[in-house]
Design a protein around this nucleic acid. Structure first.
Lengths: 270, 270
DNA sequence: CCCGATAGTTCCATTATTCAGAACTCAATT
DNA sequence: AATTGAGTTCTGAATAATGGAACTATCGGG
């Protein structure tokens, strides 16, 4: 992740239709605390939550009671352990991940580089799985992380699978941050999407982080209930442009295999 | 509410005091879906949730709207991706984990075996971190998992740090399952806790899984806001009883170091 | 020791959400 | 066409959430 995100909130505030009743208000609080740089005091939350003190106090109490938040010894609030428990279950059983797993491993074997599976959620990519070479991995380091859509191979691959109206909606809802000198703008992104649709491959040429390149391909279900991508990522000195081209086909192949698996695994009723 | 009240309620979190209003009801649903073997249909959830149809329908709608649940193409409900996002943040920033990380690595280097950091939540142990040797790890495989307290080294170590009243409360609230022929009973567990308090080390001698042993030590903060443990786990043929004894001291040492770190990192207000 | 801040908690009449159950739609079966 | 199963929508009534103010710490000076 980049060093300091600052306070840039390209959250989905944009199409903020109506709240989800009580739950919506509580989730806003949960987001505030989990997005913070560290534990927050009551007053800190009060300042950004825009709720009366009494109300906020009760809401935090409920979240804490349920284990979604935790109160540290000094009274500050931090994300709670229940989140880990819920997530580990949802991850372990995720259908798409299970279907993709063997293909990700195969791709890792072939290339020797890190392989990712990501899925589109709102205007972000969430990494569902990651297969690395051999070094002991910082495990949550990537999985579950929400990353920008316009400067990752998986993100661009996923976008290319969307119909134009959804694509437009997403592009216009995102604020484009300038990570490296190669980071795309809305215009160049649109042009690239057209390329990806033609060729079937998305590339990240040091657009998010200097020295990191990747080649990706879209993975999606027919009804677009799943829209994501697979990618092979590595350092620029190993992933030369020739190498990227060379791996474009196997990456597309892995994507195809995963999609076949999805049709079998999810197609009929069950 | 209806005639069919007597249902299986032996879920671990059962005996909590008061419900948390609306949130509590929604969390029950979320638990039902995340604990299921696979995606559930509306009717499946209806059967176990004990809510009127209309009510359940709205509740699931809200959870889905927030991304905590997901509706598959065939209408079944599965845990949603938002959970991964929330969890990855909460994990990455977890204070205890960050403090413990270097000590876990050191212990892994020393022993060459898998090292765990776990924390007590209710009557379960949740794994906060895991450092393995060299093979590419199935990452969520363990982290975030809730495991029984009476047959894991970390669980027993954590218990030994509790005062008797809390210990009793937990032991009496748990139903002891018989995993292997070495799995403890409430009585033998109490006796072992006494040993652990004396020696400072907990052992798992194939009590949870045949062929797996481990040596652990408690890690806790002074005010017991954090109660957990570190452990070294491995196959019985490598972790002979002599080896377990040999590593008992370094494991205690790592635990001590983590606790020192906690006092510095969490003690003053900041 | 008291003053004035700052931080967090509790109370309670008002109001908005949620609730429950029935009526309704839609699709497959017979 | 009639029946069953699965899911959705609608309603007044019940309940839980709200918000403002009053209350209690806790702290740092003077």
């Amino acid at each position: 992740m980049s060093a300091t995100d600052g306070d840039i909130m390209d959250k989905n505030e944009a199409a903020d239709k109506r709240e989800t009743g009580t739950l919506g208000k509580l989730m806003v609080l949960l987001d505030i605390v989990t997005h913070a740089d560290g534990p927050m005091r009551f007053t800190d939350i009060l300042a950004v939550a825009g709720q009366p003190r009494g109300t906020l106090h009760r809401q935090l109490g409920h979240l804490t009671e349920e284990g979604l938040l935790e109160v540290l010894a000094d009274g500050r609030y931090a994300p709670g352990l229940r989140l880990l428990d819920l997530a580990s279950r949802s991850w372990a059983r995720n259908e798409f991940r299970l279907i993709a797993e063997p293909h990700l491993n195969a791709l890792q074997q072939l290339t020797g580089e890190t392989v990712h599976l990501g899925v589109l959620r709102g205007a972000s990519v969430i990494y569902l799985d990651k297969v690395e070479g051999s070094q002991p991995v910082r495990m949550y380091s990537q999985i579950g992380n929400a990353s920008p859509i316009y400067c990752t191979g998986v993100g661009k691959a996923a976008l290319s699978a969307l119909p134009d109206d959804r694509l437009d909606a997403i592009i216009s809802s995102v604020s484009f941050q300038h990570f490296t000198e190669n980071t795309l703008t809305p215009e160049t992104l649109r042009r690239e999407i057209a390329d990806i649709r033609r060729s079937g491959n998305a590339f990240d040429r040091e657009e998010h982080e200097v020295g990191i390149r990747c080649v990706a391909a879209p993975v999606f279900s027919e009804d677009l209930s799943f829209v994501g991508g697979v990618s092979v990522t590595g350092p620029a000195y190993r992933l030369t442009f020739e190498r990227l081209e060379e791996w474009a086909l196997p990456v597309r192949g892995a994507a195809q295999s995963i999609m076949s698996g999805m049709r079998i695994g999810l197609g009929p009723r069950r």
